[in-house]
């Protein structure tokens, strides 16, 4: 016989699943949102996304090659591309290139590679990059371009986001300010409609596109329903109670559909590496994120709390993993 027999322990077959398949699966799920952002923000969306992806891939490659001096770079696994896209989706479409590059460096360099690369990072790299930029460049990061300016990039006119409106209503204690909101349906499809309102980050503009991505990921079994559903349900219930108690707090449907909540719940909080491992843990994690988000949105200084809520819960993930064990087969209640 020509070959030596190969010996290893069972199982001798594999499902064929791979890291790449999962990463590219998430990227495919992001395509609808990307198309929508191109329609609404045009050139700006394209420039921001491409810059972010290119910078993330470059930094990942450069760090593995020159600093960690590994023979094989990990660019091929698609995780750097995914970080790049998610980072871009969390940025306004009129952000200058140099800021995006800094964000990518922080996301990959500090958020991911410092801890040992894929699988070792405690915090979601894209969110680390985004929050770093938000704190370092608050002006650029919070001047949201209005939708519909397809050909403009840095010179796009900016406006207030629905979240800013909600915040203003709470601050003023005046529920009538909320009438400026574009309405639930417009928030769902992201259409500017008649209102001349700024929209927000380029990925969060259309809740419907993100939900399509969620359905795709659930269908392909890339993620389970636990995290997104628990976040959305918590936000809905908590915001609903607040709305009932005092109408200056926006109605829960608007809260769900506005800002980065959908993007965060579907794509950021479900990041494999930084979310808990068991279903019970995922539910706790999701509920906590939902709760924190609403708390920050309604009582905090920032209009948006998703990024902070996810990062805070990322820090708790090891603890959740430690205490939430899956239900063992035949477990007897003590």
């Amino acid at each position: 016989m020509a070959n030596k027999l190969i010996i290893s322990l069972s199982p001798h077959v594999h499902s064929g699943d791979s890291v790449q398949k999962n990463m590219y699966g998430v990227l495919i799920a992001l395509i609808p949102a990307f198309i929508v952002s191109l329609i609404y923000f045009g050139v700006g969306a394209a420039i921001v996304t491409l810059t972010s992806v290119a910078a993330c891939v470059f930094f990942e490659w450069a760090i593995t090659k020159f600093i960690l001096k590994k023979e094989r770079t990990t660019v091929g696994d698609g995780s750097a591309i995914l970080t790049g896209v998610l980072l871009a989706f969390n940025l306004p479409s009129n952000l200058p290139i140099w800021i995006i590059v800094i964000g990518a460096l922080v996301a990959i360099g500090i958020g991911k590679m410092t801890f040992g690369g894929l699988g070792c990072n405690p915090f979601n790299p894209a969110l680390v990059g985004r929050v770093f930029l938000l704190i370092s460049f608050p002006v650029q990061m919070t001047s949201w371009p209005q939708v519909g300016q397809v050909t403009s990039y840095l010179d796009a006119e900016t406006g207030a986001t629905p979240l800013a409106v909600m915040k203003a209503a709470i601050k003023a204690g005046d529920a009538s300010i909320l009438e400026q909101l574009p309405g639930s349906f417009n928030l769902l499809i992201g259409a500017p409609g008649n209102c001349q309102m700024g929209a927000g980050s380029l990925g969060e503009i259309c809740a419907l596109a993100l939900i399509i991505g969620l359905v795709y990921m659930l269908w392909k079994k890339i993620i389970t329903w636990h995290i997104p559903v628990s976040i959305l349900a918590t936000v809905f219930v908590f915001a609903g109670l607040m709305h009932l108690a005092n109408p200056v707090y926006a109605n829960p449907v608007d809260v769900l559909l506005s800002g980065g909540l959908m993007l965060g719940a579907i794509f950021m909080a479900t990041d494999y590496v930084t979310s808990p491992m068991t279903h019970k843990g995922m539910l706790i994690y999701g509920i906590a994120i939902g709760f924190l988000t609403v708390v920050i949105r309604m009582f905090g200084a920032y209009p948006e709390g998703m990024s902070f809520a996810i990062l805070i819960m990322n820090a708790f993930t090891p603890l959740i993993n430690n205490y939430c064990k899956p239900k063992r087969f035949g477990e007897v209640k003590k």
């Binding site: 030596k4 027999l5 190969i6 010996i7 290893s8 322990l9």
Partner: peptide, 13 residues
């Protein structure tokens, strides 16, 4: 060598 080991790189395994 008569066979080729393809398991985890650990003598114990």
């Amino acid at each position: 060598h008569t066979t080729q080991y393809d398991g985890a790189v650990s003598c114990a395994v």
